[in-house]
Simulated scan of single mutants.
Amino acid sequence: MVDRAEERDPRLNPPERLPDNVKAVWDEIVASNDVAGTVDRQALEAFCYLVARMRQAQERIEEEGMVVRDARGKVQPHPALEVERKLAEQIRAWGDRFAPLVKPTRKRGYMADATAAAVANAPHLQGEDGKKYAGLIAAARTQAWLIDEAQRDSMEALNEAVIKIMPQYIKACSELQITPASLSVGVAPETQKQDKGGGSGSNVSSLQERANRRRTG
């Protein structure tokens, strides 16, 4: 059975009344999914029973074979095959609700790494105070990753990313107070005055012009 770490969010621990094989399924799902704070415990419990019972049926089939003889000696399909089929149908009916998260690997990229470093070195984005910026941080890091991917693709893709993604990225960085133009010691990001000068648009235009010069140079 999968070990349950003591420090895990208590909401993710399975009910003690569950059999060990059902608890094992519960732990597998929790370990491969992001359900903290949002898990429907009753739904997850029902799903775990389905999976555990299907596995029991599969184990019986493995041990006893796909065919058995009835009381009259007649060969027939193992009854567990029908049980397995019905349970599999019920599990499929749940769709992707408790499916493991896909965690794609990403290549290291300058923009993404630089953004991560900037966030890590911003004191106001750390600890409890920084949690309220979690969504904006995620958005900025995603945009940085997309720009890196565009750079790997082609100059045309990078040029398009500079036009479409870079303004949003620069705005997010400004709101997070991780760009030099937005720095103001002792002032929280939400109280920063908006830049009334060239703003992110001028920065983006400059980057685009440089990219075009490199392309045609």
Rank of each mutant, 00 (worst) to 15 (best):
Q143M: 09
A139P: 00
A117G: 07
A122K: 08
D129W: 06
K131N: 05
A138C: 09
G95R: 10
K107S: 02
L101K: 15
H124Y: 07
L136C: 09
H124M: 00
T115K: 00
T142F: 12
M155K: 05
D148Q: 04
A116T: 14
G95I: 13
I137W: 10
K131E: 15
A112N: 02
Y133H: 12
K132Y: 12
E149L: 04
D96V: 14
R152V: 02
D129C: 03
K107L: 14
A138H: 14
A116L: 06
R97F: 12
D153I: 04
A99D: 14
L158G: 00
Y110V: 03
A118Y: 07
F98E: 00
A134E: 12
A144M: 04
M111S: 01
A122S: 12
Q151P: 00
R141F: 12
E149N: 12
A134V: 08
Q143T: 03
N159H: 06
R152D: 07
P123G: 03
V119M: 07
Q126I: 00
D129Q: 11
G127C: 07
G135K: 11
Q126P: 00
H124N: 02
A140R: 04
L158D: 00
R97K: 13
L158W: 09
D113R: 02
L136R: 15
A116D: 03
A117T: 14
A93M: 06
A120K: 09
A93L: 06
K131V: 15
Q126K: 09
M155T: 01
T105P: 00
T105A: 08
L146I: 08
Y133N: 01
P100A: 06
A117S: 14
K131I: 15
A139L: 15
R141M: 15
A140F: 08
P104C: 10
E149T: 07
L101F: 11
P123Q: 00
G130D: 02
A150K: 04
F98W: 11
A99F: 14
A114G: 01
